[in-house]
């Protein structure tokens, strides 16, 4: 099962190398307002996390996921459920 720190690292790495986010990514960052992720950015991030942690994210997951931390917690929950 993935730890929240693992997922945060992965989010940082995807943000930097794939999404060209230049600012340092903090857990409290809002995915839209702070990181400025558009639908392409969200897809790249979600699919990147799915592929790394072997989880499935869907559109309904958007409910209640606003920040980097929310997303990391979601991935941890999913990876626990599938393990």
């Amino acid at each position: 099962m993935a730890s929240e720190a693992d997922v945060l690292d992965a989010i940082r790495s995807i943000a930097q190398s794939e999404l060209e986010v230049e600012r340092p990514v903090q857990p409290g960052d809002d995915l839209l307002a702070d990181l400025g992720l558009d639908s392409l950015g969200l897809t790249v991030l979600a699919v990147g996390l799915e592929n790394r942690f072997r989880v499935k994210l869907s559109q309904e997951d958007a409910v209640g996921v606003r920040t980097v931390e929310d997303l990391a917690k979601l991935v941890v929950r999913r990876s626990g459920a599938s393990a």
Partner: peptide, 11 residues
Amino acid sequence: PPVRLGRLEEY
């Protein structure tokens, strides 16, 4: 099909 983490309402 729906986009991951996208807005459901609009979809």
